[in-house]
């Protein structure tokens, strides 16, 4: 599968190492459809290709947004691109968050660090159809207040009466007067019905492991917990075996998994 050419419309700084790129297809008659949780393979010409989740609103089909953290060769090259530059896009790939399946339930979204980016499309969808869901809670943990993504949107969501937003930092800096502590400590501070709640988690694996344990302690069943897993990828379409995790391929069967279906392989030292 060959990458499709896209233009960078805007590159916006989120934090010192994280940025959001907004892309438009070079053929402007094309629209881009995706489901919340899916990712694209972004190809920086002459440098390489990386899987990055789609972080925009699924209802806006004329542009695609990705939020990436500059950690290495490709993501750093991506960060240096300017509006008007070209990029190759393959996708969308992978499974999606259970937005439809959550109708009529409480929804607890738990994000750590850049893990908020693949969950942002879920929030857009839940808000657009707010009446279909019961309680909606967003629990978000980051390292310091400077690492918060989407600050303006967080403020807007916090201002709503129909979503509970709780944010915590590992280390308080500056004049931070919010919560301090790990994201798992927020779980017991929101009231939800564990038997009728869907939990969606994205963040570093350690954070997800402890979050799952705490949700289980609160009575949430494994079949109601969904996680997004990251593994090194190459082909993105289930051919090369690069992303294999037990019998599953993260690119094709994931990245979003129902926890009871992946628990044997999740967080294991060697797979």
């Amino acid at each position: 599968m060959l990458p499709n050419p896209f233009h960078i419309q805007r590159l916006q700084k989120e934090t010192y190492d994280t940025f959001t790129v907004e892309l438009t297809p070079t053929n402007s008659t094309n629209t881009f459809l995706f489901s919340a949780g899916q990712f694209n393979m972004l190809y920086v010409f002459g440098v390489g290709e990386v899987p990055i989740s789609i972080s925009g609103d699924p209802a806006r089909t004329e542009t695609i947004k990705h939020t990436a953290r500059a950690v290495g060769t490709v993501t750093r090259a991506l960060q240096k691109l300017k509006s008007g530059d070209m990029l190759g896009v393959r996708g969308p790939f992978g499974s999606h968050w259970p937005v439809e399946e959550s109708v009529g339930n409480d929804v607890v979204i738990i994000a750590g660090g850049i893990g908020l980016s693949p969950l942002r499309p879920v929030l857009y969808q839940l808000i657009a159809q707010r009446k279909k869901y019961k309680k909606i809670a967003l629990l978000y943990g980051v390292r310091t207040p400077e690492d918060l993504l989407y600050k303006r949107e967080l403020e807007q969501w916090r201002g709503r009466f129909d979503i509970e937003v709780k944010i915590t930092v590992d280390t308080a800096t500056g004049d931070w007067c919010g919560d301090v502590g790990v994201v798992t400590t927020l779980i017991r501070r929101v009231q939800f019905d564990p038997l009728h709640a869907m939990a969606m988690i994205c963040g570093p694996e350690v954070m997800m492991r402890f979050t799952i344990k705490e949700l289980q302690n609160c009575g949430v069943g494994n079949e109601r917990i969904f996680i997004s897993m990251e593994r090194n990828m190459k082909c993105g379409i289930g051919l090369c075996g690069h992303c294999q995790c037990g019998p599953t391929f993260i690119c094709k069967d994931g990245p979003v998994f129902r926890y009871d279906r992946i628990k044997e392989f999740f967080g294991k030292r060697e797979i």
Partner: peptide, 14 residues
């Protein structure tokens, strides 16, 4: 103690 260990382990760092 568990929460503090997690808090100190810089799970969000690169």
């Amino acid at each position: 103690l568990e929460a503090t260990r997690l808090q100190l382990s810089d799970v969000y760092g690169v």
